[in-house]
Design a protein around this nucleic acid. Structure first.
Lengths: 247, 247
DNA sequence: AACCTATATTGTCTAAAAGACAATATCTAG
DNA sequence: CTAGATATTGTCTTTTAGACAATATAGGTT
């Protein structure tokens, strides 16, 4: 039973460690990829897991996630969008002492080649379908965390401009549309997508210049950027509908 | 600097305690109310705070939130809807040792009278506007947690049927509409609301019976209930729009 | 009973948005 | 110049949202 005078006397409780784990998402070769590390130590030696680690004494949770992302990939906070996903703290989630992990999700475009760190043999971006097909199994409850993160991303891009974080700082409308098509697994009408984009000039703006996109010709596409670099903020009109009748 | 072999050796880190705090929301007298406790011990003696406490060794985070809700209010998990909100873990968030708190939000209808517990002088439901107007200040970062919870609720009812959790098990359409009107602070058209409701029969269903609602007459309203008692699941069509032009 | 008020429910009209798809514009390659 | 590729614009139709009128059914009053 809980002692009477303990609301803020944590010493009466068994030790708990707090970690952060980050689901880093990027698009490679037309498919969603997730950053995984191969563990270099027990438990789960040589098992695949999400990058993460324990929080430091002097940093908050967001800072810990940013630090872990940087340590594992070299990606700084400016290049990625980080958001808190949720916390996972089943007493039985691992063989070690109790660890409560605060999970984050991150979107980044064209990440540098990840490298193994102090606690990881190696790190690489894995095609999501390899994990979903069971080809690659994750340690601990990281599969659950991953599923939650993907669902969060699919849902977030519905009413924010965050999909642009999968693209470079400037991007064409087609590039942005491809992000939606990949994440939602459906084709979107280029004309309607464009119309919806132009209805959101407060969030996405045409910068005036153009880029020829294909070596085999085609009209050059105009370039766009996020009006608000953070990509937060609710769109006035969705760019596309996630749940409409198939074409 | 972080030791090399420490991914799951938490003993090398300074102690952290993990708590849960719950934002319990209910509608009283036509306004949103939040459950607060008056602290019975230091720090923040006699300060107002969200109900919460440290997690126990053998329970997961959800169970800890349910337990705290029950301890502080007598409300069981069947009567309320609980969801995880997010974690708050600034090193400077309190004068005590480091505490990372996992915040939950809960919706309940017609809660029993709350009572003070072992660590609280008393507990009561407070009108949200009293907190927002600054009449009542909260300890720690609980004001931030509260704001996030309210925003989450306002957003959640937009695309789920969770607003029904503010009503009794069976409710009239007008009662449900009032929840939206209170949470969003705007009037909704009764006719259009009804039309939208009937387009979501997978989530909300007419049970056939009726209830006379006013002592001063009026046509009896038909009674409805949640088809899925959990209230989760995305509505096919929103019942109303949060961001439309004022009438 | 006849009528008034209150509330719920249904219906109607219009404007806006979504979806399908056709037409046009501008590039590369030959 | 022509064909092929890609981007952009336009048009038509269907669906949905918002405003609001009309009807239904209760209690209370004369």
């Amino acid at each position: 039973m809980k002692p009477a005078s303990s609301r803020y006397d944590p010493h009466t409780y068994p030790p708990v460690a707090v970690a952060v784990d980050v689901v880093v998402q990027t698009i490679l070769e037309g498919a969603l990829h997730i950053l995984l590390i191969e563990r270099g130590e027990a438990p789960f030696l040589s098992g695949w897991a999400l990058p993460g680690g324990f929080i430091h004494e002097d940093e908050n949770l967001d800072q810990a996630a940013v630090r872990e992302l940087e340590e594992k990939t070299g990606i700084g906070a400016d290049d990625a969008h980080l958001g808190q996903l949720g916390s996972y703290g089943d007493p039985s989630r691992g063989p070690h002492m109790r660890v409560v992990t605060v999970a984050y999700w991150a979107i980044c475009a064209h990440p540098p080649e990840p490298h193994g760190g102090t606690d990881a043999k190696r790190a690489k971006f894995v095609d999501l379908s390899e994990i979903e097909d069971g080809v690659l199994k994750l340690a601990l409850d990281h599969r659950t965390i991953l599923d939650d993160a993907i669902e969060r991303t699919r849902s977030k891009i519905e009413y924010t401009a965050l999909a642009a974080k999968f693209c470079q700082a400037t991007f064409t409308i087609t590039e942005l549309r491809r992000v939606y098509e990949i994440l939602w697994g459906k084709r979107l009408d280029p004309g309607n997508f464009q119309r919806n984009l132009r209805a959101n000039q407060a969030f996405l703006s045409d910068i005036g210049s153009q880029r020829t996109v294909s070596p085999s010709g085609g009209r050059p596409a105009s370039l766009w950027r996020l009006a608000d670099p953070t990509g937060k903020g609710r769109l006035e009109t969705p760019l596309a509908s996630r749940t409409s009748a198939p074409q």
